[in-house]
Design a protein around this nucleic acid. Structure first.
Lengths: 295, 295
DNA sequence: AGCATGATTTCGTCCTAGACAAACAAGTAA
DNA sequence: TTACTTGTTTGTCTAGGACGAAATCATGCT
């Protein structure tokens, strides 16, 4: 039985919004404690999680609240083509749900060793994150395990980001409110593997501080990640102000599923799929190809 | 000119609280935009920062709002004995304010090498954090630099935490809303240097998830950190529920300046000074002394 | 059809003003 | 000292209203 505050924090939905939804759509329907304060039952939390996810996927609240909970679930399954992955990746399922802490790091390192950086990112890390995401959605995955997994993955991948001399420098960071930093990490690793000098700042920065950060690193480019969690319109707005703020010679690279719809902003490279990083590197930093070939 | 939402996030004070302060104490006094919405001037933000700090230091709002802004500043300087450090640590001031990113890590590593783990933590890291804190308070330190510094320090110290076999295992973590994780890191390093097997989880967990985490690691103890940023009463409440939730054989170690007042909870070891860690280790884990001496 | 332009709906955030329990301070009795 | 009572302080919740920005729909034009 959560209070409205706790629920708000849990879902990343404002307190006011939760109350307004109740007023307008008649959902959620919390019980009341002795004081008349709202108390939310666990079952409703799951429904709201689904709604939030669908909303970030581009559906509008009115439509979502008109649907039954079963219909919403069906929509989600259909939309996010989650079932595509339901069959495979039993090994990853196992890794996510049951492997103990001590073994976890070893398991991941082994895979990294065996497959190499790029394949590890694309064929292990990405599906791993998807499995985690689904676990979070269904409430199967405890927050503890989730944090542990991302911590472990972060530690392993961060080691790969050794500085490179005489290569274009990119700063990777996320804006305030963006809690999903794994996508950013993965892209940084890939960029690095293509010969760039990548610096990762795993902290949530206000838009205004991005400039400071870029100057500080004397970076040639800045990369931002916007997960489903971020509202697309906000991402767009932030990127626009950022482009105005930053000097023109600084590249801006934006990624993440919040930008999946055709977003075409001048002077900003958008990249919603990790596989696009390779061509993007070739396009933006052409003189790197030779180095890479030489290795 | 910030909106109430932005101000709330910046200060870590609830939106409702800000409005109620205005209603009751006549401060802050935001201007209003065309819609009648509050807009806060930068000068007021600084005042509120001071108030928040003093509040967390144990003063009550009513008293603080009765004071003039000059009196509040005086109180803060006196209370936190900040001027004690104003004279020394010019080298650290320099490190915090002007050293470039690339050099920073090198500088810190050199100091660590020269002084050894324990001295580094007590004589470099601690004052460094204090200097940063003061910079934040006065608005001198940009968020970008602050994050960079803590990132760098974290990276260096985390490496020291190699797992130890056959030693009591402690999980270090912070509860939701606690943004200051450096204190926790430092204490983990010290515990580790006294022979314990320390595992650091640099994520903010809900109280309910702590149990999961402890079980998951099969830990013998859990260490929590509560910075000035956390309200002492909340810390106390959380610790109490935690003690009820966790099995009795799991030690609870709590630290951080939020617990500075004599807090005496049964079954919980409180430790508000990093220098107390050594005696605490000796008390709680007596069979470790021999190993340590043997080294 | 394809596209600009204006009208309408939808949605999140902010507003006021009042209520109340939990935490705290101070005073009183054992 | 310690323990209980009483009054004050403080943060968070409530209700229902308002409004701008964005999204969607409708219309007219090429």
């Amino acid at each position: 039985m959560l209070t409205i505050q706790q629920l708000s924090q849990e879902l990343g939905i404002g307190v006011d919004t939760l109350r307004v939804w109740e007023r307008r759509f008649g959902f959620p329907t919390p019980e009341r404690d002795a004081r008349g304060h709202r108390r939310y039952a666990p079952a409703q939390i799951d429904h709201l999680r689904v709604i939030k996810k669908l909303q970030n996927l581009g559906h509008r609240p009115k439509k979502l609240f008109a649907l039954s909970s079963a219909e919403r679930l069906a929509l989600l399954n259909q939309q996010a083509d989650l079932q595509q992955h339901n069959s495979g990746h039993q090994d990853l399922q196992y890794l996510v749900n049951t492997v103990a802490a001590a073994q976890l790091e070893h398991e991941l390192r082994t895979r990294l060793q065996k497959r190499g950086t790029e394949a590890f990112v694309l064929a292990v890390a990405v599906p791993l994150i998807e499995v985690m995401d689904r676990g979070w959605l269904s409430g199967t995955l405890s927050i503890a395990r989730e944090h542990l997994l991302s911590d472990c993955l972060t530690a392993i991948l961060k080691e790969l980001l050794v500085p490179r001399e005489a290569a274009p420098k990119i700063v990777f960071l996320t804006l305030s409110g963006e809690r999903h930093k794994l996508g950013l990490l993965l892209s940084a690793v890939l960029f690095h593997s293509w010969g760039l000098d990548c610096h990762l700042v795993l902290e949530e920065l206000p838009v205004a501080e991005v400039t400071t950060m870029v100057e500080f690193f004397a970076a040639d480019a800045v990369a931002l990640s916007f997960s489903v969690q971020t509202a697309p319109r906000q991402a767009k707005r932030d990127l626009a102000t950022l482009r105005k703020t930053l000097p023109n010679h600084v590249h801006i690279i934006a990624g993440g599923s919040a930008l999946r719809d055709g977003l075409h902003l001048p002077g900003i490279s958008v990249c919603t799929d990790l596989r696009q990083i390779r061509p993007l590197c070739a396009r933006e930093f052409p003189n790197l190809n030779q180095e890479k070939k030489a290795e």
